[in-house]
Amino acid sequence: MGKLELLLLILLGLGALVFGLWKKARATTARERQERPPRPAGHGAVLSDDEFYKKVLLMQAQNAASPDEPRPPVAPESPLPRWWRTFWGGSPLGKTRRPAGPKIRV
């Protein structure tokens, strides 16, 4: 009987702890909702194909307008340290890095 009471007491304590954390999280969320400005609806202006193409051309022209301006140097990718390689010389992750680019699914 004593073990059952102890188990019930532990479960009651855990329930009170979870309830307190839940109540605190709701209060924090409500406070942050009042402090932060509302997010704008949607993901931004929708451009037609023609407008998008014009914007791309404008950005390309702005980038090409100042060829004398020095660009920040690109740091070369450092190879994995010697201790990170496997005994056969490959990467322990099994894959090499791919250049970042658009992911096209067909």
Results as ranks from 00 to 15, higher is better:
Pro37Asp: 02
Pro67Cys: 08
Leu57Asn: 13
Ile10Glu: 15
Lys3Ile: 09
Leu21Cys: 02
Asp49Arg: 07
Thr29Ala: 12
Gly2Tyr: 00
Tyr53Trp: 12
Pro81Val: 05
Leu4Met: 14
Leu4Ser: 15
Glu32Val: 09
Lys103Ala: 14
Pro73Ile: 05
Arg36Val: 06
Leu9His: 14
Leu7Glu: 15
Val106Phe: 15
Ala45Thr: 06
His43Cys: 09
Glu51Lys: 00
Ser48Thr: 14
Ala75Phe: 00
Gly2Ile: 08
Pro72Val: 03
Trp22His: 11
Arg105Lys: 15
Phe19Gly: 06
Lys95Met: 07
Glu69Trp: 11
Lys23His: 08
Thr28Cys: 05
Glu32Trp: 03
Leu11Asp: 13
Val56His: 01
Phe19Gln: 03
Gln34Met: 06
Ala16Val: 04
Trp83Gly: 00
Glu77Arg: 12
Ile10Met: 13
Gln60Cys: 09
Arg31Tyr: 01
Val56Asn: 03
Pro72Lys: 06
Gln60Val: 02
Arg85Gly: 02
Pro37Ala: 10
Pro92Leu: 09
Gly20Val: 00
Pro76Ala: 15
Pro102Leu: 09
Gly94Pro: 00
Leu58Asp: 14
Lys103Thr: 13
Ser91Glu: 06
Trp83Asp: 06
Ser91Asp: 12
Leu7Thr: 15
Pro67Asn: 05
Ala25Thr: 12
Met1Phe: 03
Ile10Asp: 15
Thr86Phe: 02
Glu69Phe: 07
Arg36Lys: 13
Gly20Arg: 09
Leu80Asp: 02
Ser48Leu: 01
Gln62Phe: 03
Ala65Trp: 07
Ile104Leu: 14
Asn63Val: 08
Gln62Gly: 07
Ala64Trp: 04
Leu9Glu: 15
Asp49Lys: 08
Ala27Thr: 07
Thr28Trp: 08
Arg97Gly: 07
Glu32Lys: 09
Lys54Tyr: 10
Pro92Ile: 06
Lys23Val: 10
Thr86His: 00
Lys24Phe: 04
Ala41Ser: 11
Gly13Ser: 14
Lys95His: 12
Lys95Gly: 02
Lys3Asn: 10
Ala27Lys: 01
Leu80Thr: 08
Arg33Gln: 13
Glu51Met: 03
Gly13His: 09
Leu57Met: 12
Gly90Ile: 00
Pro67Ala: 01
Asp50Thr: 10
Glu69Tyr: 11
Gly94Ile: 07
Asp50Gly: 05
Leu14Val: 13
Lys55Asn: 10
Val18Thr: 11
Arg105Gln: 15
Met1Pro: 02
Lys103Tyr: 11
Val106Cys: 11
Gly42Met: 01
Thr28Val: 09
Pro99Ser: 06
Met1Thr: 13
Leu12Cys: 15
Pro92Thr: 01
Asp68Glu: 13
Glu77Phe: 02
